[in-house]
Amino acid sequence: MNTTDGWFADVDRDDPDAMATAVREGHADEPRDWPAIALEAGFADDEDDYYDAVHEATMAATRAAVTERERADDRQLVHAVRAMDDCSRTANELAERLAEWAGTIDPEAGTGVAYARELARGETDDALEEPVVRSLAARVADLADEADDLRAFVERQTPAVAPNLAALADPVLAARLISLAGGLEELAKKPSGTIQVLGAEDALFAHLRGHAPSPKHGIIYTHDAVRGTHPENRGSAARAVAGKLAIAARVDHYSGEVKPELEAELAERIETIQARTAGDDGGADDE
């Protein structure tokens, strides 16, 4: 099909799949009088028949496109991000066990997942020829690889599920928030004050029992705008970030439109907050 042809140019009126694909994937530079051209080409018997075909094809094409976009749903993301965390936590735990064991054989033994990878590749001392140690190291390396793959999956899928949230936070943080809330809808229904302390439940309940200060931030601590702000103003930054993330989650859940202005608004607010410490004298602020 070239760019001056209609969607029906290369398809058979009796082939619904091909018609739907042509609607989804085709394009043209300029519209033309497609009904007349289709009749001339013998694609349809009359105008009614042509419009029936358009209805059939657009319904099938759009249904397929919607299903495809929605298959990338938030439940998948919740599972993926939890599996990712489980894999890396287990890899770290086993790497510690391994380091302890290897240390009894080779006093020069290293620690951590990086050392486990070395060991698995057989780049270490000959004293560590013991097959069970090497095999354990291989398991650790595999688990760490699995965690990396899952992270790549999360980074790919989050922008499809929650475009605004993924743009405002990084995709992994966005997925973690969805996971902590229990889903995108649940996150969209949470007030921003709750989003601010998601992941800091222990500190929050200690505070509510009355023997601790209120937590300033939960998992959103990993957001650059929070972490990059002077501790004195981190509470303000966390509040601003949580507020915009709450809006982003609602837009993603209820409308699905992309709103680039959210990012600009947050950047502007964070700049104001960070300017307070940069000025050192505190300066005037609207809070």
């Binding site: 099909m1 760019t3 042809d5 209609g6 969607w7 042509a22 609607v23 085709g26 394009h27 043209a28 530079d29 300029e30 519209p31 033309r32 009088d33 497609w34 009904p35 419009y51 029936d52 358009v54 209805h55 094809a57 657009t58 319904m59 094409a61 759009t62 496109a65 919607v66 976009r69």
Partner: peptide, 28 residues
């Protein structure tokens, strides 16, 4: 809504990119 309306044609396309639906939507 389009199910019961045989002359309503739904298109999951971006209105900022007319070339992605100009092969379906007629001129004039």
């Amino acid at each position: 809504a389009a199910e019961s309306r045989p002359r309503l044609f739904p298109l999951l396309k971006d209105a900022r990119k007319p070339e992605t639906y100009a092969h379906v939507v007629e001129s004039d």
